[in-house]
């Protein structure tokens, strides 16, 4: 068992554990903090796959930008008295749990018993494709059009967010 494997299992355990904690916490601020921990672990898991660029972007965009937005909104709405929010076990939740367990069992069945010849990791090749140089080259050649469309999407999102959050339209 080499260092990389130990690193992966450690991160994987914290990854699943923080996801569970996030879903079960009552206070949204604590849930948001667990989600940030989850995103950092995911960035570490990306590093075990040699995807350096995606790992850095994960921390910058998710743990940095998106989660700051979440925490900001939670603070802005002042949800302290929302802790009494009814989270009792109901028939609907039992059905939801049953459906989720069924989906999980299906996925586990496919991944564990029905696997055909899965590819093995080619370390040199995966290090080659994960670098900023490789990602940048593909982004500005083969994927140039989607990249430009992305900027229109972000513009639409900015305008939409301003319009929705505005107090009164005039």
């Amino acid at each position: 068992m080499n260092v990389e494997t130990i690193f992966f299992y450690l991160l994987g355990a914290v990854f699943v554990g923080s996801a569970l904690m996030m879903v079960t916490r009552r206070n949204p601020v604590i849930a948001a903090l667990y989600l940030i921990l989850n995103f950092f672990c995911l960035a570490g898991i990306y590093l075990t796959l040699h995807a350096q660029f995606i790992a850095v972007i994960q921390i910058l965009v998710y743990a940095g930008a998106i989660m700051v937005l979440f925490v900001f909104v939670i603070m802005l709405l002042n949800l302290s008295d929302e802790r009494r929010l009814s989270e009792a076990i109901s028939f609907k939740k039992i059905v939801a749990g049953g459906l989720s367990v069924a989906l999980l069992l299906e996925l586990l069945y496919i991944f564990v018993y029905r696997k055909t010849d899965l590819p093995t990791l080619n370390a040199e090749r995966s290090i080659e494709i994960g670098t900023v140089e490789s990602i940048g080259r593909h982004l500005f050649t083969k994927f140039l059009f989607p990249f430009e469309v992305t900027s229109i999407l972000l513009l639409a999102a900015i305008v939409g967010a301003v319009v929705l959050a505005k107090r009164r339209l005039d």
């Binding site: 995807a51 093995t120 990791l121 494709i129």
Partner: peptide, 11 residues
């Protein structure tokens, strides 16, 4: 993406 050696997944 890493296992198939194809950059499309990361894009």
């Amino acid at each position: 993406s890493a296992y198939l050696g194809d950059v499309t997944g990361q894009m």
